[in-house]
Amino acid sequence: MAEASPLHHLYFAGIDIGSTMTKAVIIDAAGAVIAAIKGPTGAEHRHLANEVMAKALESAGLKLEEIFRIVATGYGRFNVPFADEHITELSCHARGVYHVFPGARTVVDIGGQDAKCLKVREGRLVDFAMNDKCAAGTGRFLELTAQSLGVGLEGLAALSQKATKPVEISNMCTIFAQQEVVMRLSQGERIEDIIAGLHRALAERVAALARRLGVEPEVVLTGGVAKNAGMVQAMRAALGCDLLVPPEPLLTGALGAALLAKEHTERLLAQGKPLEVKARRLEKATFYTGG
């Protein structure tokens, strides 16, 4: 109960700046989500993590001063000027997924720019594997091929359900796969079968990454790609096991970040350290450039 906690008046936020989407989650001292906002990271929005945060505050009916601790995650996590700490999206996903599915041992996250598999014990990241090749095996692969098929991301799931005989897509290079798609179309293959073939090819690739780590149930799929029912089905088939999908598969990173912010504060409290609110302003994010 929130009332029972000495932190009851405090709120915590997680902000996850991914390659495609920026997500913010605000939780209360009981861990209940009171605001969850998604917005495109996009070229022009790249520095506007502050706006996503402002929207989350508005949705929660809170002021910035009421947020006790903010954790930034995702590839844009560095130098979010209003964050107290940055933690990798791997640990944040592990923590967020545990909140939704306490039995989770394996997390497969397919985002816009990478795919990762996490081994999780009670919400803690214990091992991981990430794709380290290119766009192959990522949401971007689906996005671009959907584009060249003229169906858009939203069309993928529905169309793939109508497949009767998924075609073999052998090339996982995003550019070459598109050429293969064009070739298949000219051979008279049905678009539904091509899409199902693309899903299968992507799922096989990510499953191979997961097998490197060892797949233990329960297995959870997160990231934007988990919103595509055709992909979820293909992942189930590729992994040969059941797959859980959180109601909001994009938000587990930001949720985990908020929960880690809360737990950090609880540790401070347990150590008898004074809780001081950091003075901060919602400033534009600056991005890590490698220098």
Partner: peptide, 18 residues
């Protein structure tokens, strides 16, 4: 390449977190 440094940093940090 220099472009591989940011993903490298994420992997190293995630490893330290484990």
């Amino acid at each position: 390449t220099e472009g591989s440094l940011a993903p490298m940093r994420t992997r190293v940090e995630a490893f330290l977190e484990t």
